[in-house]
Amino acid sequence: MITEAKEINFHKQELKGRSFLTLADYSQNEINYLIDLADYIKKQKREGIAFEPLKGKTLGMIFEKSSTRTRVSFEAGIYQLGGLGIFLSSKDIQIGRGETIADTAQVLSGYLDGIMIRTFSQETVEELAAKSSIPVINGLTDLYHPCQVLADLQTIKEIKGKLQDIKVVYIGDGNNMAHSLMIGAAKMGIELVIAAPEGYHPDTSVTDKAKAIASEHHAKVSIEANPFEAVKHADVIYTDVWASMGQEAEQLKREKDFAGYQVNAALIENAKEEAIFMHCLPAHRGEEVTAEVIDGKQSVVFQQAENRLHAQKALMTALMG
C-alpha cells in the first residue's frame, strides 16, 4: 500500500482530462496507479488527514438510473476532496425533455469540471464524452460498470497482496458486471471464469475483446457451465443479482434458470480454503447467495463497498485534479 505522497508522484500516470468509460481504455500501469492512489487516499482518510486536491472543482452527477452506492460514494467523495457534487436527475434537466446529448455535453462543460453519468446506453456515455471538453466518468451502463471493478481490484489486492496469478470466478448473469470484470481481469493478469447458464453468457463482442486483451497480459478469460467445476482452486468467488434493474418482469424465469447457480456453503467448499466472497450489492439473500455465505467470515462485501468511495476519489483526483 502506498504510504507517502511522494511515492504516488513517482509512479504518477498523466490522466488529467481523460474520461473513464471502460477499463479497456486504460493500461495496466494506469490501473495500478489508480489503485495505489486509492490506497493512499484511503489511508489519509483513516488517519484523519485532509486530502483536498479538488478545492473549487464541481462534479455534475447525471442519474437516469437510481443508485445507493454510486450516488453516495461520488457525492461524499467529491466533498471530501474539497469539491462540490451536483445531483442531476434526468427528470430535472433538459436531457429528460429531448435536449440532445451533444448540447447537454457542451453546456455542462462550461459549468463543471467533470461529469459522472449513470445511464442505460453505453452509446450515451460515449457521445457525452466525445462532445464534452471535461472528463466523463461512466457510473454504470447496461454494458459496463467500470467504477465497481476498479474498487473490486483494489479490494482483491488489499486482501491477497497481488492481482497476478489470482483466480476469480464470477457466477451468474453475464451482465455489465461480468463484462467489466472480464476487461479488468484481462488487463491485470487475472484468471477469470464466468459460470453462467446457456442464454445468459456475456456479450460475444465483449468476450472476444477481453480474450484479446488477456492474451497480451498473461491473463485468461473463459466461460464454464458448471459452477462447481468453475470454483475449483478459486481465490475469489463473485456474484450479482439474477435480475438487474429493469429486468424485474423476468424475475420468476430467472430464478428458475439460475437455480443451480446459487453461491452457498456447498459451492464455497469447492474453492480454496482461503477464498473470499464478493458481491457488488445490493444482494438478495436466499437467491443468488445464502445469508450464511454473504454474512460469513469469507465475505468481504462491505470492505468492497467502502472501496467504491476510495477508488472513485482516486479517479476524480487523477482526471479532474
Results as ranks from 00 to 15, higher is better:
Thr239Asn: 10
Ile2Lys: 07
Ile268Asp: 04
Gly83Glu: 01
Tyr261Met: 11
Ile183Thr: 04
Ala225Pro: 00
Leu252Tyr: 00
Thr68Phe: 13
Val149Leu: 15
Thr290Asp: 03
Gln106Pro: 02
Asn32Leu: 10
Ile31Met: 04
Glu47Thr: 03
Glu64His: 07
Ile276Tyr: 12
Gln304Ile: 04
Asn32Ile: 01
Ile137Lys: 13
Met245Ala: 11
Ala212Ser: 10
Ile101Gln: 06
Val221His: 02
Lys57Asp: 00
Asp25Ile: 02
Ser132Glu: 12
Val169Ser: 13
Val231Met: 03
Tyr40Pro: 04
Lys157Asp: 00
Ile159Tyr: 07
Phe51Asn: 14
Ala275Lys: 00
Gln298Tyr: 03
Ile194Val: 14
Arg254Thr: 06
Val236His: 05
Val149Tyr: 15
Phe74His: 14
Thr207Phe: 15
Glu273Thr: 15
Ile190Thr: 06
Lys12Ala: 13
Pro227Met: 12
Ala196His: 05
Asn307Met: 07
Thr104Ser: 14
Lys167Gln: 12
His201Lys: 15
Ala214Met: 09
Ser121Ala: 13
Ile134Val: 15
Gln312Arg: 01
Met188Ser: 08
Lys187Ala: 04
Gly17Glu: 13
Thr100Leu: 09
Glu250Trp: 02
Leu21Arg: 11
Val149Asp: 08
Leu34Gly: 05
Ala219Asn: 10
Phe258Ser: 02
Asn176Glu: 13
Tyr170Ile: 00
Ala234Asn: 13
Glu52Pro: 02
Gly296Glu: 10
Cys280Lys: 05
Gln164Asp: 11
Gly189Trp: 03
Ile268His: 01
Lys167Val: 02
Ser132Phe: 09
Thr317Asp: 10
Ala271Glu: 01
Pro135Leu: 15
Glu250Lys: 12
Glu30Val: 05
Ala195Cys: 01
Ser27Lys: 03
Ile183Glu: 10
